[in-house]
Nucleic acid binder design. Structure first.
Length: 204
DNA sequence: GCGGCGATCCACT
DNA sequence: GTGGATCGCCGCC
């Protein structure tokens, strides 16, 4: 039994709660007529106000991040290090500028296509297929053209499935790669599924 | 207008 | 374990 997550889900006012709630949901894409999907196993919350790590910190609006200021339920894709498109989910209400970064998924369907997109065929390294935000986008076929799409549409969407054991196996930690954010760098706003092999390996 | 740097990944040593 | 790729944003001149 599965169902597509409704807009209401994304418009909850607490992005940290949502980042945790997104663990265990299914992220699905249908791109170029081909379906791929995986269970979300790692996320990070970014808050538009009072969060130095957020692109929209203090409500700062630019051409790149403008979609963050819309109502929740849209995709925010941006280019990181000039190379990697990273997929985020806009949450909360208009002008709150909150978002959740999807850092890792556990692949479920369309595995051969994901391997092809990632140019990774060795089954020995299968845990590297989607264990990082840039890898997730590449495996699912998400790129900059998918900026601003509704997540209740038929290109990128999320589904809820029965998963009774997920909740008690969620752990938190500080977010990755945001050392510049001062005291906000230590906020425990990264969430991940304990012992899942697809959770990203953190460089220290 | 310019230069430094980033919510990363991979090839190479 | 290290450094290069490569583009948009922002601070400063």
């Amino acid at each position: 039994m599965s169902k597509k997550l409704p807009l209401d889900f994304y418009r909850h006012s607490d992005v940290v709660y949502l980042a945790k709630e997104l663990i265990g949901k299914y992220l699905c894409t249908s791109i170029d007529g081909q379906k791929t999907s995986g269970m979300i196993v790692e996320t990070e919350a970014y808050r538009g106000f009072n969060d130095a790590a957020c692109h929209a910190r203090d409500g700062r609006k630019t051409q790149r991040n403008s979609v963050m200021f819309e109502n929740g339920g849209l995709s925010y894709v941006y280019l990181c290090y000039g190379i990697h498109p990273l997929f985020n989910i806009v949450t909360n209400k208009k002008n709150c500028a909150d978002a959740v970064l999807i850092r890792a998924i556990h692949p479920l369907s369309g595995l051969p296509l994901m391997q092809q997109r990632r140019k990774l065929s060795s089954s020995r390294k299968i845990h590297e297929l989607t264990s990082g935000p840039g890898k997730v986008s590449k495996a699912l076929g998400i790129h900059l053209d998918h900026y601003g799409l509704s997540l209740t549409g038929s290109t990128i969407w999320l589904e809820e499935h029965q998963n009774s054991s997920i909740k008690r196996n969620i752990q938190s930690s500080p977010r990755i790669g945001i050392g510049y954010a001062g005291k906000d760098a230590s906020l425990p706003w990264r969430f991940f599924l304990k012992n899942d092999p697809f959770v990203s390996k953190v460089k220290i």
